[in-house]
Simulated scan of single mutants.
Amino acid sequence: MLSASHSRFKISFILIPATSLQLTYKGVYIQDMLSRAGVTMGSLLRGGNLSKYVLAVCADGYRVVYSLAELDSSFVRDLPIIACLIDGQALNSAKGPLRVIMPGDKKPARNCFQLKELIVRSASN
């Protein structure tokens, strides 16, 4: 579970452009969680490490793959987070308690919810 000791991050984005509905999610950078777990990130993310990816597994069996590069601030402008709050409230049971938010995606399909685990793997194996 996310704790107060983790760095918190807030992201706001328009969920449905036609309605201008804006939501604010709070959570932790996925990059920070991976770094704390010993995954190669930042300036060392090059060469063979670029063949690594993260598999997000959700409670309903939904799975999403993210390359390490798209989770790293040295490659992307808008860092994804694992959110635990929406507009200051805990995510409801249908979407939470944890949800991946990919702020740069045009479609929300990779904003998976009811996150159970993140698995780091290598495509070279």
Rank of each mutant, 00 (worst) to 15 (best):
M1Q: 11
S3C: 04
A4C: 05
A4E: 11
A4Q: 10
S5I: 11
S5D: 08
S7N: 11
S7L: 05
S7E: 03
R8V: 01
R8E: 04
F9I: 15
K10W: 00
F13T: 08
P17A: 03
A18D: 09
S20R: 12
L21Q: 06
T24P: 11
Y25C: 00
G27V: 08
V28R: 11
V28Q: 05
D32C: 01
D32R: 00
D32N: 10
L34E: 10
L34K: 15
S35Y: 05
G38S: 04
V39Q: 08
V39R: 11
T40R: 07
M41G: 00
G42L: 04
S43A: 13
L44K: 14
L45S: 10
R46P: 00
R46M: 09
G48R: 14
N49E: 13
N49Y: 11
S51M: 07
S51G: 08
K52F: 10
K52H: 15
Y53H: 13
Y53M: 09
A56S: 14
A56K: 04
V57R: 13
V57G: 01
C58V: 04
D60G: 00
G61L: 09
Y62F: 10
Y62H: 07
V65Q: 15
V65K: 15
Y66G: 08
Y66E: 05
S67V: 02
L68Q: 14
L71C: 10
L71H: 13
S73P: 00
S73R: 15
F75Y: 15
F75I: 05
F75R: 09
F75L: 09
D78V: 00
D78F: 02
D78W: 01
P80H: 04
I82H: 01
I82R: 00
L85G: 01
L85M: 06
I86L: 10
D87W: 02
D87T: 08
Q89I: 03
A90T: 03
A90Y: 03
L91A: 03
L91T: 03
S93A: 14
S93W: 15
A94L: 14
K95I: 02
L98E: 10
L98M: 11
R99F: 00
R99P: 10
V100R: 10
I101P: 13
M102Q: 12
P103V: 01
G104V: 02
K107P: 03
K107A: 12
P108H: 11
P108K: 12
N111K: 05
C112A: 15
F113H: 13
L115N: 06
L115V: 15
K116W: 01
L118V: 07
I119F: 04
A123F: 08
